[in-house]
Amino acid sequence: SGEEFIAMYTYESSEQGDLTFQQGDVILVTKKDGDWWTGTVGDKAGVFPSNYVRLKD
């Protein structure tokens, strides 16, 4: 389980282990570690910068 966040911006990365997503995607955040959080979008999982998302209303 985790908290749902909304992507405010598209995040694209070629780094292994990074979670890429489109603006407006719902991200289920499973771990918060400083500026880099872990989460899932659909069947993808990985880390992403926390300043790209906001808490879902």
Results as ranks from 00 to 15, higher is better:
Ser1Glu: 11
Ser1Asn: 15
Ser1Met: 09
Gly2Ala: 11
Gly2Pro: 07
Glu3Tyr: 06
Glu3Gly: 05
Glu3Ser: 08
Glu3His: 05
Glu4Arg: 07
Glu4Phe: 07
Phe5Leu: 04
Phe5Ile: 07
Phe5Asn: 04
Ile6Trp: 02
Ile6Thr: 13
Ile6Tyr: 06
Ile6Asp: 05
Ala7Asn: 03
Ala7Leu: 00
Ala7Ser: 03
Met8Lys: 07
Met8Val: 13
Thr10Leu: 00
Thr10Arg: 06
Thr10Gln: 08
Thr10Ser: 09
Tyr11Gly: 03
Tyr11Ile: 01
Ser13Val: 01
Ser13Asp: 03
Ser13Cys: 04
Ser14Trp: 09
Ser14Pro: 09
Ser14Arg: 13
Ser14Asp: 13
Glu15Ser: 14
Glu15Asn: 15
Glu15Leu: 11
Glu15Gln: 15
Glu15Val: 13
Gln16Ile: 10
Gln16Glu: 15
Gln16Asn: 13
Gln16Met: 15
Gln16Thr: 13
Gln16Gly: 12
Gly17Val: 05
Gly17Lys: 12
Asp18Arg: 14
Asp18Met: 14
Thr20Leu: 05
Thr20Ser: 13
Thr20Phe: 03
Phe21Lys: 04
Phe21Met: 03
Gln22Ile: 09
Gln22Tyr: 04
Gln22Thr: 10
Gln22His: 12
Gln23Pro: 07
Gln23Lys: 14
Gly24Ala: 04
Gly24Arg: 02
Gly24Leu: 01
Gly24Trp: 01
Asp25Ala: 07
Asp25Leu: 00
Val26Thr: 15
Val26Trp: 01
Val26Ala: 11
Ile27Pro: 09
Ile27Gly: 09
Ile27Tyr: 00
Leu28Tyr: 07
Leu28Val: 13
Leu28Cys: 11
Val29Thr: 03
Val29Trp: 01
Val29Gln: 03
Val29Ile: 05
Thr30Ser: 06
Thr30Arg: 05
Lys31Tyr: 06
Lys31Ser: 14
Lys32Met: 15
Lys32Gln: 15
Asp33Asn: 09
Asp33Phe: 06
Asp33Trp: 01
Asp33Leu: 08
Asp33Cys: 15
Asp33Gln: 09
Gly34Phe: 06
Gly34Val: 02
Gly34Thr: 08
Gly34Ile: 15
Gly34Gln: 15
Asp35Ile: 11
Asp35Ala: 12
Asp35Asn: 06
Asp35Met: 10
Trp36Gly: 01
Trp36Lys: 15
Trp37Asp: 03
Trp37Val: 03
Trp37Phe: 12
Trp37Tyr: 12
Trp37Gly: 00
Thr38Leu: 05
Gly39Trp: 00
Gly39Met: 00
Gly39Cys: 03
Thr40His: 11
Val41Met: 13
Val41Pro: 00
Val41Tyr: 08
Val41Arg: 12
Gly42Val: 03
Gly42Arg: 10
Gly42Trp: 02
Gly42Thr: 02
Gly42Phe: 05
Asp43Ile: 09
Asp43Gln: 13
Lys44Val: 06
Lys44His: 05
Lys44Phe: 02
Lys44Asn: 03
Ala45Met: 13
Gly46Thr: 00
Gly46Arg: 02
Val47Trp: 08
Val47Phe: 05
Val47Arg: 13
Val47Pro: 00
Val47Tyr: 05
Phe48Ser: 04
Pro49Met: 01
Pro49Gly: 01
Ser50Ile: 05
Ser50Cys: 10
Ser50Asn: 15
Ser50Gln: 10
Ser50Tyr: 08
Asn51Ala: 12
Asn51Asp: 09
Tyr52Ile: 12
Tyr52Cys: 08
Tyr52Leu: 10
Tyr52Trp: 02
Tyr52Asn: 01
Val53Pro: 02
Val53Lys: 00
Val53Phe: 00
Val53Asp: 02
Val53Glu: 03
Val53Thr: 04
Arg54Ile: 04
Arg54Tyr: 14
Leu55Lys: 06
Leu55Phe: 06
Lys56Ser: 07
Lys56Met: 15
Lys56Gly: 10
Lys56Pro: 12
Lys56Asn: 10
Asp57Cys: 12
Asp57His: 07
Asp57Gly: 14
